[in-house]
């Protein structure tokens, strides 16, 4: 079936199978930042924004996003907040294998977009859908806190 969506700011038409997931459709369209880790909604390596909300794209039917706005990391590479987050994660040493990182960035971005106040607790809750087997979450959380602190100061 044919669907139209706004993918990373660009009007896009996709031919999708009724049973296809958004994850499959995104990777097929070349959005390789969206990773496959479990296909059961648990790991979050496939997290993207659907109309601004973080979703695990492996448990979203592709057909559903007809008429919606879908944002992947590729679509946020020029965004100031995203760049700040990426830089902080990199500098804090939060990137190990990096497989979980695009999904984590999307979840953190969605959280920080809401604006302050954002404390460690809210950050940890926002990351419940993003499993990371490398870092123990210490440095990713530290990095997000640092960005949240900057936002707080400048807001």
């Amino acid at each position: 079936m044919n669907i139209s969506l706004n993918l990373n700011g660009t009007a896009t038409d996709w031919e999708v199978a009724p049973g296809q997931t958004l994850l499959q459709a995104l990777r097929a369209s070349g959005a390789f930042s969206v990773k496959l880790g479990c296909e059961t909604g648990d790991c979050g390596s496939c997290t993207v924004l659907l109309d601004g909300q973080p979703v695990n794209s492996c448990v979203v039917p592709a057909a559903r996003v007809n008429g919606s706005r879908v944002t992947t990391l590729e679509g946020l590479l020029g965004d100031d907040l995203m760049i700040r987050l990426q830089t902080e994660l990199v500098e804090q040493g939060a990137v190990q294998c990096g497989y979980c990182i695009p999904g984590m960035l999307i979840s953190l971005y969605a959280l920080l977009k809401q604006g302050p106040p954002i404390d460690e607790e809210t950050i940890r809750h926002a990351l419940t859908g993003n499993l990371c087997r490398c870092t123990g979450y210490v440095k990713p959380v530290e990095a997000a806190r640092a960005v949240a602190a900057v936002l707080e100061e400048t807001s």
Binding site: D42, G44, Q53, V55, N56, V59, S107, H125, T128, G129
Partner: peptide, 12 residues
């Protein structure tokens, strides 16, 4: 509701 599933799952 906040304890059901994880954050991204709760969006849908």
């Amino acid at each position: 509701a906040s304890q059901c599933g994880n954050r991204p799952v709760r969006s849908t």
